[in-house]
Amino acid sequence: MSLTPEDILKIAHLARLEVPEEESSDYARELSAILDFVEQMNEADTRDILPLSHPQDATLRMREDKINESDQREYYQSLAPETEGGHYLVPKVIE
């Protein structure tokens, strides 16, 4: 698989990473090499094989509907870059 610099910019945007345009070609080359490598997977015939998402095909355990958390806003927001009036702040979002 050969990625183009445009592909790189698209992926970078999805991942919210900055790739300066002048680096996008290098990035494309590097990631293409990795993709070429992982394409060795095609050596395996996986027809009719179910995908495995969880080791040992585990199943979900559920909990009771109980409230066991209390307000820790002050503690948690002490970690935040910017808060005001109990809210986390981000630059104005236009809707």
Partner: peptide
């Protein structure tokens, strides 16, 4: 970047799903 690509529309089956099947093998 690689992971985002492997999950993205049009490439999911060839990469992520293929890998999950291989994982079972």
């Amino acid at each position: 970047m690689i992971g985002t690509y492997a999950l993205s529309a049009g490439y999911y089956d060839a990469y992520y799903l293929k890998a999950q099947k291989l994982r079972r093998l």
